[in-house]
Amino acid sequence: MTYKAFLIKYAEIAIKGKNRYLFEDALVSQMNHALKKVDGTFHIRKEQGRIYVEMEGEYDYDGAVEALQHVFGIVGICPVVLLEDEGFDALAGEVIRYIDEVYPDKHFTFKVNARRARKNYPLESMEINAQMGERILEAFPETSVDVHKPQVMFNIEIRNQINVYSTVIPGPGGMPVGTNGKAMLLLSGGIDSPVAGYMIAKRGVTIDATYFHAPPYTSERAKQKVVDLAKIISKYTGPINLHVVNFTDIQLYIYEQCPHEELTIIMRRYMMKLAEHFAKENKCLGLITGESIGQVASQTMQSLAATNEVCTMPVYRPLIGFDKQEIVEISEKIDAYETSILPYEDCCTIFVAKHPVTKPSLNVIHNDERKLSEKIDALMQEAIDTVEVIHIEA
């Protein structure tokens, strides 16, 4: 069957009270953006707490569904038939025609779920359920009714137009991107940080990203891997400005001046400072990392406190209590995993100490960082001045 419309379902937006229209408008904007690259002509409209996508002529059905499945705020995409109200007999005929076309095999159990949003319709919801169920059984005696666990649910919504649908394709949920500010993601080539960016964007936050590159210790392939990961998550987050920071000289200087067991923590502190600089420059309201308590030496409670100390804006860590397998499952769900595990080194793994400190003392860290005072400010400024910004869009 060629559908000419989708009914879009959302969840949290419905409880936003007087601000609800702002969230709906943001969702419509994100949907328009997602459908731009899909073959076909699409028109999106709001009506009585519903959002519809209507299509003109031929279009790419699978492409449209896939695009909408990447729009945060959508919980269901329903291929729907929109009918004018021409009486119950005409409606029953259209429902029979719909079933005959959509379900070649009629051996299924069903339930009719009517909702009378327009109260001037002559039949109440329960009457529609009973009478429509009777018509379906007469037309297709091989079907049967199961009101508890039906194989097919026929939804009939009586609105300005009558909505008939039986398929609800899951959306990603969450809130529309752009409704909850902007944050800077510290994006590496690993599994965790792309998932962290995805999860924060799911709550309506616009994402930019910072990647620390260390040539010649990290290759162009490692950089391209990060660009590819940014492109994958941008399917959900929208366009991302990726800040590629040359971190080599800073890392080497820390390596020369500081105890090796503290390298990771001290490098991480300077990464946070640089990421925060670009975050403020881009009017972000916080930083995002993929850290999880205890996963590695730099992610113990003491280590996280040491890196937090250099930040003046909030640091959001959506994976903080996740097991690695839970993170991997989300990475696979968003199609980032296979790219994340490509064997290209990142700047952190090159300078890892054999025995990194797991419970760093801030007093010791402060004393060791004083050894950097001669050149670190100039090196930081050079990293800022030479940053490469790549605009990434799926």
Rank of each mutant, 00 (worst) to 15 (best):
V244Q: 06
N246C: 03
F247V: 09
T248K: 01
I250F: 06
I250Q: 03
Q251C: 10
L252S: 10
Y253W: 14
Y253H: 13
I254Q: 05
E256F: 02
C258R: 01
C258S: 11
P259Y: 07
P259A: 01
H260A: 02
E262V: 09
L263Y: 00
T264H: 10
T264V: 15
T264F: 07
I266F: 14
M267L: 14
M267N: 10
Y270H: 05
A275I: 11
E276V: 00
H277Y: 15
F278Y: 09
F278T: 08
N282A: 15
K283I: 05
C284D: 03
L285W: 04
L285F: 01
L287R: 00
I288K: 06
I288N: 13
E291K: 09
S292A: 15
Q295F: 04
Q295G: 05
V296L: 00
S298V: 01
S298I: 05
Q299F: 08
T300N: 06
M301Q: 13
Q302N: 08
S303A: 15
S303P: 11
L304C: 08
L304N: 04
A305Q: 14
T307E: 08
N308Q: 02
E309W: 09
M313V: 15
M313T: 12
P314S: 15
Y316D: 11
R317A: 06
L319Q: 12
I320Q: 11
F322S: 04
F322E: 00
D323V: 02
D323Y: 02
K324I: 05
Q325M: 07
E326L: 11
E326F: 04
I327M: 02
V328C: 03
E329K: 12
E329M: 13
I330E: 04
S331L: 04
K333I: 05
K333G: 03
I334S: 11
I334A: 13
D335V: 06
D335P: 00
A336V: 12
A336Y: 03
A336Q: 11
E338N: 14
S340D: 01
S340R: 06
I341W: 07
L342C: 09
L342H: 03
L342V: 03
P343F: 08
P343E: 04
P343I: 06
E345S: 07
E345D: 15
D346G: 09
D346P: 01
C347E: 14
C348G: 11
C348Q: 06
F351S: 07
V352R: 07
K354Q: 09
H355G: 09
H355R: 12
P356N: 11
V357I: 15
V357W: 08
T358S: 15
K359I: 00
K359N: 09
S361W: 00
L362Q: 12
N363Y: 14
I365N: 02
I365A: 06
I365T: 04
E369M: 05
E369C: 13
E369L: 13
R370F: 09
K375T: 11
K375R: 15
K375C: 10
K375V: 09
I376L: 09
I376P: 06
D377Q: 10
